[in-house]
Design a protein around this nucleic acid. Structure first.
Length: 597
RNA sequence: GGUCCAGUAGCUCAGCUGGAUAGAGCAACAGCCUUCUAAGCUGUGGGUCCCAGGUUCGAAUCCUGGCUGGAUCACCA
């Protein structure tokens, strides 16, 4: 049932019948009728004047008449200026509703053997510090985009690439070795990632001190920054790591395990998961090997000091170093290895990297290098480049301690949800455990919705006060709508003994009901659009709109209090269907909905 | 300086494959709980859609130039 397509096809046919010309489908635009006008769909006549050779009003009228005569779904039409407003027969909307009753996933496309294979990489944390607000946006986007792509019929694999090696890891290892006296996260009752992050901070503190001392001794700033004892030690540690020194590797494994335990907890809380996890420590050597192969095959060049680089002049870019003079690999070398490994693993049609827009250049270069190395799939990499998360007072800076920690933020949101709920006295009959679960659902709903409702490409200002607001265009608003409907359905069963899976007869839907049906009707195209544009914000805005319209309906129209049993059943079924769509759409955003709140 | 992205109500954002009178939420103000959950609903005020040109029957939307802000142009990741 595709009203737009039917209308469009028929308009093309009408132009042929009426004016004896073949119309360009691109010139026939069918759009939703604006609220202030009567009708469901609007056809713009201006672009069709070349075919009709008539003024807009007459063209619209002739087409309107043709449509009404030849299409049974068209009940009426009106013409305003050059706009032809078409009304679809209410019974048609009703028919659509009947088709989707009790089907929670009517808008989802099933995948099949021919579905495109998509790999989505996101999260990609460093193992030297805990996750922060920026990671939260990354994780939510990556997870949600994956679900949206699945819903649009793609075969999706979610992967994580853990950046578990490099000098930054050695820094926290060194600080731990020097200062911790063998303490573990358990000893200090800390989450593993926070524990390791603490030593990373301690390293930087000590390093700064050492630099100051050297400067006081008469060294220049550059000399001091290079010669500070702890940095030298950390570099030595990295070399030992690359040589597979057993002691260093043991320490490395231990500290990473602590961090992973912490990450897992945060991922779990956020509801984030992966189908496969890659570790940079396992992929960087592949990248290195591939680069060396490219060197022998003549795709790459080498300087006298041993540095391996690629000349990208033919692509209008500079040269790019792929291996340092000492043979160690750089960031992009690892990504070359990972990309190749990933293609071997998945034979993807598309590989999406969910990474901040600060790395636009990096991913451009990556595709080009893979192209130059003659991988036919090099053009299948896409960078989902999202904007930065900023605070009202400016950018987050770890050095200035203005980074918002992911765990702290979640905790704070849960506290606010608890406080608000207790003030409203909503869940007084719940056990403590039950209530806590709802607080968590609400808190995460607020956080996720707040972040995902903004277009992924744009920078986002994270205002803590605003994010914790549960009114208006927020996750809890939508969740509340869901809980209200569930309450209706529960009461229908327990207090009035109504089975909402039953059937009703002889109903004429009224305008408010038609409005709700129309919004649900557009759900499949909304998913399609979100999948195409790669932004969950479209889903968030959609589900808010649906919830808002339902609240209005709920306020104006009696449902359980309706006396006509037939009408009551219809309204319950309609409401129930709205709740299914709300749950489905929120699910695409990774947001759970509570039965009560 | 080159490249890329953004600039819409006091604030946060929709709308951008050109279409009718530019929409929400927050904040402000005024109402609605003996009636299905008031985390809700209704109403009021609030706009040079950054500026200037251009294309078009029609521009917030497309093009050109400028202004402002951000990112990037590493043998950091």
């Amino acid at each position: 049932m595709d009203f737009e397509k039917t209308l469009k096809d028929t308009v093309i046919k009408a132009i042929k019948d009426l004016y004896s010309v073949e119309a360009d489908p691109a010139k026939v635009t069918v759009q939703k009728t604006r609220k202030d006008f009567v009708g469901d769909f609007t056809i713009v006549a201006f672009s069709l004047l070349a075919y009709s050779k008539k003024v807009p009003v007459d063209t619209a009228k002739e087409l309107g008449e043709y449509l009404q005569e030849n299409l049974s779904i068209v009940s009426d039409y009106n013409v305003v200026n050059g706009f032809l407003n078409i009304s679809i027969d209410k019974e048609q909307w009703h028919k659509f509703l009947k088709q989707i009753f009790d089907n929670a996933n009517f808008a989802f496309k099933a995948k099949n053997d021919k579905s495109p294979k998509v790999v989505v990489e996101y999260s990609s944390p460093n193992t030297n510090k805990p996750l922060h607000l920026g990671h939260i946006r990354n994780n939510l986007l990556g997870w949600s985009i994956s679900e949206i792509l699945k819903a649009s019929g793609k075969e999706v694999n979610k992967v994580n690439l853990v950046n578990d090696r490099g000098i930054h890891i050695c820094k926290s290892m060194l600080a731990w070795k020097e200062l911790a006296e063998g303490k573990t996260p358990e000893d200090e009752n800390m989450k593993g990632d926070h524990f390791v992050g603490k030593y990373y901070v301690l390293f930087n503190d000590e390093y700064k001190k050492q630099v100051q001392e050297l400067i006081a001794e008469g060294k220049t700033k550059e000399e001091a920054e290079k010669e500070a004892p702890w940095l030298v030690k950390a570099q030595k540690m990295l070399r030992s790591w690359e040589r597979n020194s057993r002691k260093i590797r043991q320490l490395w494994t231990q500290m990473n395990e602590w961090v992973y335990a912490g990450f897992d907890e945060t991922y779990k809380k956020l509801g984030i998961d992966f189908d496969k996890t890659y570790y940079e420590s396992e992929t960087y050597l592949d990248g290195k090997r591939r680069v060396l192969k490219g060197l022998t095959e003549g795709d790459l060049s080498q300087r006298d000091d041993g540095t391996v680089l690629i000349d990208l002049e033919e692509y209008g870019m500079d040269e790019k170093v792929l291996l340092r003079a000492d043979g160690t690999s750089v960031y992009i070398t690892q990504d070359i290895g990972t990309a190749i490994m990933r293609y071997d693993d998945f034979k993807f049609d598309e590989s999406i990297y969910v990474v901040g827009n600060e790395q636009d250049y990096h991913f451009k270069v990556l595709s080009i290098i893979l192209d130059k190395l003659e991988y036919p799939w090099s053009n299948r990499l896409t960078h989902l480049s999202y904007g930065m998360v900023e605070l009202p007072e400016g950018k987050m800076k770890s050095r200035e301690g203005t980074v918002v920690d992911a765990d702290d933020l979640i905790e704070e949101m849960i506290n606010t949800a608890r406080k608000t709920s207790e003030e409203l006295g909503k869940l007084s009959d719940f056990t403590k455990e039950e209530a806590e679960k709802v607080y968590e659902i609400i808190a995460l709903g607020a956080l996720k919705f707040y972040i995902l409702k903004v277009d992924a490409r744009k920078n986002i200002t994270f205002n803590p006060q605003e994010s914790i607001d549960f009114n208006g265009n927020t996750g809890p608003f939508v969740q509340y709508t869901y809980a209200r409907i569930r309450s209706l359905v529960r009461k229908a069963g327990t207090e009035q003994n109504i089975d909402i899976s039953g059937n009703y007869e002889d109903i004429t839907v009224d305008d408010k009901e038609k409005e709700l049906i129309k919004i649900m009707y557009s759900y499949p195209s909304v998913i399609e659009e979100a999948a195409k544009l790669r932004t969950p914000s479209i889903i968030a805005n959609y589900v808010f709109d649906l919830a808002k319209n339902f609240n209005k309906y709920y306020h104006e129209i009696p449902i359980l209090k309706e006396e006509d049993k037939n009408i009551k059943l219809f309204r319950l079924k309609l409401s129930n269907q709205v709740s299914l769509v709300v749950k489905s759409a929120m699910g695409l955003l990774g947001i759970d909905v509570p039965e009560r709140m």
